[in-house]
């Protein structure tokens, strides 16, 4: 035992090694006990504590990232490797990495993305995001409405649920020919693809949420003799919000998956097109950069919807 070297000090809890006493003094001191008996532990600034907490959560991620990148570098760093190493990505795609906003300008009227292919990667991402925003919004509205319908009505549930269960398993790409046949144009077909991919989790989770509303909440509405509209806005909607946002969160992830698939085939603009284009031009390092961007954007979208969900659930 090395405690013999530790300095012992007197505390309200008895004689303890200094290291123990400093920690336990905070816990043991009775509110009535004189605070002067021991010097109060030095208050650590809130900022330092916050930084420590952030460090503790972020450091393992950073460590793992460095480790994986190193392994990748070692595995693919030699001549003739089929996959470019991280350093090769950095050198060969330098322009793509450091000039993401090429061709994107912002002025008083908003954001402008230059027409044609010669746009930075952020420009492609923004084009894709715009499509996702439209398609996802449509699927959110339609999905919530349909979800509430089949959650509330047993008849609608029996009529529609089997249909939805089958359709939701169809992969986004399989919708593409149908989408093109219906809309004839790239932009609306891409939006339809996002819509049809993202809507299922929204419908099914909203319906599950409506079905899970405790009977007692409905009884409260009945005893208060709320009219159907009030019953909907005061009870059903707020009670369903948590489930609804689970669906919306899965939906936003799926719509981001769908956009890449759609744009890869259709071409023109967007991040999916960028990947396809870089593959056709044998610029595999550009593809890797695009993958990182897609991942980061998808992660951010997921977090944004999750954050809104928590805010709304608290407010609702």
């Amino acid at each position: 035992m090395s405690t013999s070297t530790a300095r012992m000090i007197e505390t309200p809890a008895g004689i303890l090694p200094e290291s123990v006493a400093v920690v336990s003094a905070q816990i043991i001191r009775h509110p009535a006990a004189p605070a002067e008996s021991a010097p109060p532990p030095r208050p650590r600034s809130k900022l330092v504590e916050k930084l420590n907490a952030i460090g503790a959560t972020v450091l393992p991620t950073v460590f793992m990232l460095v480790l994986l990148l190193s392994l990748w570098q070692v595995a693919c760093g030699h001549e003739g490797a089929s996959l470019p190493s991280p350093l090769r990505v950095w050198t060969e795609s330098h322009d793509v990495i450091v000039h993401p906003f090429k061709g994107v300008t912002v002025d008083g009227a908003g954001l402008h993305i230059q027409d044609g292919g010669d746009v930075g990667i952020a420009g492609h991402i923004l084009t894709s995001l715009k499509r996702v925003a439209i398609g996802y919004s449509l699927s959110a509205f339609a999905g919530i409405a349909l979800g509430i319908l089949i959650g509330q009505s047993v008849f609608a549930y029996r009529a529609l649920d089997p249909l939805f269960q089958v359709l939701r398993t169809v992969p986004p790409l399989a919708w593409l020919p149908i989408s093109l046949a219906i809309f004839q144009q790239a932009q609306p077909s891409a939006i339809f693809l996002i819509f049809i991919t993202a809507i299922w989790p929204v419908i099914l989770n909203t319906a599950a949420g409506v079905q899970a509303i405790p009977q007692t909440y409905r009884n409260v509405g009945k005893v208060l003799a709320l009219n159907p509209w009030q019953q909907f806005t005061k009870i059903i909607l707020p009670a369903t919000v948590p489930h609804m946002f689970t669906g919306l969160r899965i939906g936003v992830g799926m719509s981001w998956l769908a956009i890449v698939a759609a744009e890869m085939v259709q071409g023109g603009t967007g991040i999916g097109f960028f990947i396809w284009d870089s593959y056709n031009s044998s610029l595999i390092t550009d593809t890797i950069v695009a993958l990182v961007w897609i991942g980061m954007v998808g992660f951010t979208l997921d977090r944004i919807v999750g954050w809104i969900g928590r805010r709304v659930a608290r407010q609702a």
Binding site: T216, N219, V223, A313
Partner: peptide, 14 residues
């Protein structure tokens, strides 16, 4: 006109 006090109180949590 017939208020009910439910066993599980049934307060709306939101």
């Amino acid at each position: 006109d017939r208020a009910v006090i439910f066993q599980d109180h049934s307060l709306l949590p939101w």
